[in-house]
């Protein structure tokens, strides 16, 4: 059986059905990108998997254990919010060390692991700073470090780079790719940015009006009209041909 196996998850708030018949499998150390417009049910789906919202029906299995009824604290799944939600009363060091302190690791172990994580995140020199003294990109890195250091079985990323400028976003994308490789992370990466979805995922899925469709191959995703890839390609082809004809005529 796959590392993450989700079957028939449904969730409605009142008469609004938000997640419909969710089926999903994911192997260990893989990242599944999930593309979807705002309000399509992505966040609710992630919160259900994290244990922060109870589903109406269905089962979630992680590493051969059914976790559907388990509280969030026991799932070893970390959900990363859209914004870099750092604990504002703790320094960078303490934010990253938070999960380890909860796990009651020894002082030396915490010191070593956090120092090494701070270096991996290229945040040396910032460890004593408070969150409000950091830039958006630095805050997001701390947020990653705090999640990854606990060695979660599954990392759920909810549009983590949505609030960053394009340059910082690119840097963060490559940083996440390298961290995912270095720490063998299994993750669901939700985004509404097509390019980001293609870049970040080993596999790809599209969510629309509560339904999730997982594609076997990235090429299948690209060929599917509903994902918007073809329209995007057409748009950029048009721009490219305009540019080249202007270039030739000038």
């Amino acid at each position: 059986m796959s590392f993450l196996h989700i079957e028939n998850i449904n969730k409605a708030f009142g008469s609004d059905s938000i997640v419909k018949n969710l089926q999903l499998t994911l192997e260990n150390n893989r990242t599944l990108s999930i593309l979807g417009k705002s309000g399509c049910g992505k966040t609710t789906m992630l919160k259900i998997i994290a244990g922060l919202i109870k589903p109406d029906s269905g089962t979630i299995r992680l590493n051969n254990k059914t976790i559907t009824e388990q509280p969030a604290a026991k799932r070893n799944i970390v959900y990363l919010y859209q914004e870099d939600l750092l604990f504002p009363h703790l320094t960078v060091f303490e934010n990253i060390a938070f999960g380890l302190r909860i796990q009651k690791k020894s002082k030396d172990e915490i010191q070593d692991q956090v120092e090494s994580m701070i270096n991996s995140l290229e945040l040396s020199g910032h460890k004593h700073k408070m969150p409000q003294q950091l830039s958006g990109g630095q805050r997001q890195r701390v947020s990653f470090g705090r999640a990854i250091i606990t060695n979660p079985s599954l990392l759920l990323l909810d549009e983590p780079f949505g609030s960053l400028d394009s340059m910082t976003r690119q840097n963060m994308q490559s940083l996440f790719k390298s961290l995912a490789q270095q720490f063998h992370i299994t993750s669901l990466f939700v985004t509404h940015d097509l390019k980001e979805a293609l870049l970040m995922g080993d596999e790809i899925a599209y969510m629309d009006a509560g339904y999730l469709k997982v594609y076997k191959e990235k090429s299948d995703f690209m060929k599917d009209k509903s994902t918007g890839v073809l329209a995007e390609v057409e748009f950029w082809n048009g721009i490219a041909s305009d540019l080249s004809s202007n270039f030739i005529s000038s």
Binding site: N76, R101, I102
Partner: peptide, 20 residues
């Protein structure tokens, strides 16, 4: 939201109250 995040990082309810 910070409480949910702390729960997601493994904190029990009393730890969330004490630490967050």
């Amino acid at each position: 939201e910070l409480e949910s995040l702390a729960a997601s990082l493994g904190s029990r309810p009393n730890q969330i109250i004490r630490r967050i």
